[in-house]
Design a protein around this nucleic acid. Structure first.
Length: 570
RNA sequence: UGGGGCGUGGCCAAGCGGUAAGGCAACGGACUUUGAAUCCGUGUAUCGGGGGUUCGAAUCCCUCCGCCCCAGCCA
């Protein structure tokens, strides 16, 4: 992002993190003379914003040091992984703005090499075929406080192990009947070192290798060697792998192959949402959301559909920083990033979400005026447009109050306000239905205030957005709120489930919204600021004649704070 | 409980022995044809607690406390 390593002192301080400190040191001491990273997703689900953080760290670090980065799918478990996810993941990463070029790899590319590595370990007497059942393996492993016991198959001869392992590969044994295990130390205080499984038998079809294999490497056995094969210098990963590092070191050292340096950082947590593929999958499968790309989901596809820009997500990832402390980032930080980005780039339009009909009594029947409006008050380069004005318009229901509270400076009986880019109007009458609900307003306008300025210099406090009733386009607008009502949805009472905290009002659909006519042909994905309301994005559900908008994020709303304070003081 | 990590204002997070950056949030005010944006301003931070070393410690040592992770033939 325009950052170079030649920064001023202030900038380089602001952008430092402990990973870069380590890499600086590695480069200085000559441990490495370049930087090559990788992002290693498992294709078993969609990427979420937590992955975006990891990608920005992995790829951003490589960019910072003018190095390379790989994309490698950790596809070592055929029963969980699907091609659809590899495609979705690639799309998400590209959308985020990263290009891995030709360096797209798969752990499955290394299956044969990994097999040969395993044979090497067997030959060194460092791995053995174990016939213990899954339950027995668990029993033999011991507990956190008690050491494990050696497997009775631990001392098989090299020849027997070689033969058995070959036959495992040949498909002679059923699933779960045997495993290949590393011979390390069943008494290690680090449970990962208690003869971990390297291969398991899985008669399952793999999305890339088909039925070529019926034994598959465990992640722990595949990961470090994959990094080594690819010449990764800095293997950046999340904290939970820290305790696996001794195992990765052991494998690499026993194999005597190139040794990357692993550095662990804390994964991203956001309040009011969940960030695990398993839970996200449940939300999808149980129908709590409409899919992985539901705009309420923290998935990249969801955020994209919601209207988030890739730039805003990358800025967010930069701003939250990188550290080793577990933390929960306030969703307000993310919202700030998208507002900041959209404020600069989104053209402004007017759209009335909850229309209230207003008749301007003294405006000539049948007359239509084209009024000029700027597309972006901060960027004249974005040009202007015209908006039709006529005798009957719609304003926002919330912009009228019959008995206004203090400091309410919108429309009320007898009050004058400005219609943006149009005229000053004064409310002269309120029409209600039998139930007492306001259904229509009558106003008068001041012809001298065309464009929104009064020649006599009189001021109005309020400016309202509006739309001409005869010209407006009807649209559906989907308003979103946080998916969960509780900051930490996982902090559930006994017997409860995180779904208990699902926010019933996370989606609100408004079907009778009226937007300015220029929006009729808005392209799917285009983003706008509906003035005084928020940022909206055209949803793919839109079709010719049917516009659907997603609310990306509302504008900050000082008035609602004032109101809340007033009510509290009562 | 064994092991591995982590604890800096409400939330992130700099800091690496010389006397606590920045962002978000919050709260004032200015400005305003978006109650937006923008601009100004506002925090006594027990640097998890307690000892110690030092002229001087968030930074070094000791100790205690709290939180997270590991007992998948998941990744």
């Amino acid at each position: 992002m325009g950052e170079t390593t030649e920064k001023t002192g202030a900038e380089s301080t602001a952008f430092s993190n402990f990973i870069w400190d380590i890499i600086d040191e590695d480069l200085r001491t000559g441990r490495f003379d370049h930087v090559h990273t990788r992002f290693p997703p498992e294709p078993n689900g969609c990427l979420h914003i937590g992955h975006a953080k990891a990608i920005c760290i992995d790829y951003g670090t490589a960019e910072r040091y003018d190095g390379l980065y790989n994309l490698r799918f950790d596809d070592t478990n055929p029963v969980k992984e699907e091609v659809e996810f590899v495609e979705a993941i690639k799309e998400d990463i590209r959308w985020l703005g990263f290009d891995w070029g030709e360096r797209e790899y798969y752990a499955s590319d290394y299956f044969e090499q990994l097999y040969q590595f395993a044979v090497q370990l067997i030959e060194k007497g460092k791995a053995y075929v174990c016939d213990l059942s899954p339950e027995e393996v668990r029993e033999y492993r011991g507990t956190l406080t008690e050491p494990g016991r050696n497997s009775p198959y631990r001392d098989r001869s090299v020849e027997e192990n070689l033969d058995l392992f070959r036959r495992m590969r040949a498909g002679e044994f059923p699933d779960e009947s045997r495993t290949l295990r590393a011979k390390i130390d069943m008494a290690s205080p680090n449970i990962n070192m208690r003869d971990p499984v390297m291969y398991r038998i899985l008669h399952a079809e793999h999305h890339r290798t088909g039925d070529e294999w019926c034994i598959y490497p465990m992640y722990d056995w595949a990961h470090g060697q994959s990094d080594s094969i690819e010449g990764i210098t800095h293997s950046l990963c999340s904290l939970e792998y820290e305790i696996h590092r001794p195992l990765y070191d052991w494998f690499l050292d026993e194999l005597e192959i190139y040794h990357p340096r692993q550095i662990e950082f804390a994964r991203l947590n956001l309040n009011y949402t969940v960030m695990s593929k398993r839970l996200l999958l449940r939300l999808v499968n149980e129908g709590h959301v409409r899919g992985w790309d539901d705009p309420r989901m923290p998935t990249l596809s969801g955020l994209r559909r919601r209207g988030y820009t890739p730039e805003s997500i990358r800025t967010f990832c930069d701003e939250i920083g990188v550290a080793k402390a577990d933390s929960v980032v306030d969703i307000a930080m993310l919202e700030h990033c998208i507002r900041d980005d959209l404020n600069q780039r989104a053209p402004r339009v007017m759209g009335v979400l909850r229309p209230l009909r207003v008749v301007i009594d003294n405006y000539p029947e049948g007359q239509v005026e084209d009024l000029e409006a700027v597309n972006h008050p901060l960027d004249p380069g974005m040009g202007t447009r015209t908006i039709p004005f006529s005798r009957v318009i719609y304003i926002e229901r919330g912009d009228f109050c019959e008995d206004p509270p203090r400091k309410f400076y919108r429309l009320a009986p007898g009050r004058e306000v400005r219609l943006r880019y149009a005229y000053f109007i004064t409310c002269v009458d309120v029409v209600k239905d039998e139930s007492g609900e306001v259904v229509e307003l009558h106003c008068t306008y001041d012809p001298a205030t065309r464009g929104g300025d009064a020649p006599d210099g009189r001021k109005v406090k309020g400016t309202l957005h509006w739309v001409s009733a005869a010209h407006a386009v009807t649209a559906e607008v989907r308003l979103y709120d946080r998916l969960f009502t509780q900051e930490n949805p996982l902090d559930v009472p006994e017997g409860e489930d995180f779904t208990a905290f699902l926010n019933p009002k996370s989606l609100q659909v408004l079907t009778a919204c009226q937007v300015e006519p220029g929006l009729a042909d808005a392209a799917v994905g285009s983003r706008y600021q509906f003035e005084r309301q928020g940022y909206f994005c055209v949803d793919p559900d839109s079709s010719a004649g049917k516009l659907v908008f997603n609310e990306t994020v509302p504008l900050r709303d000082t008035w609602s704070k004032i109101l809340k304070k007033q009510q509290k003081n009562k």
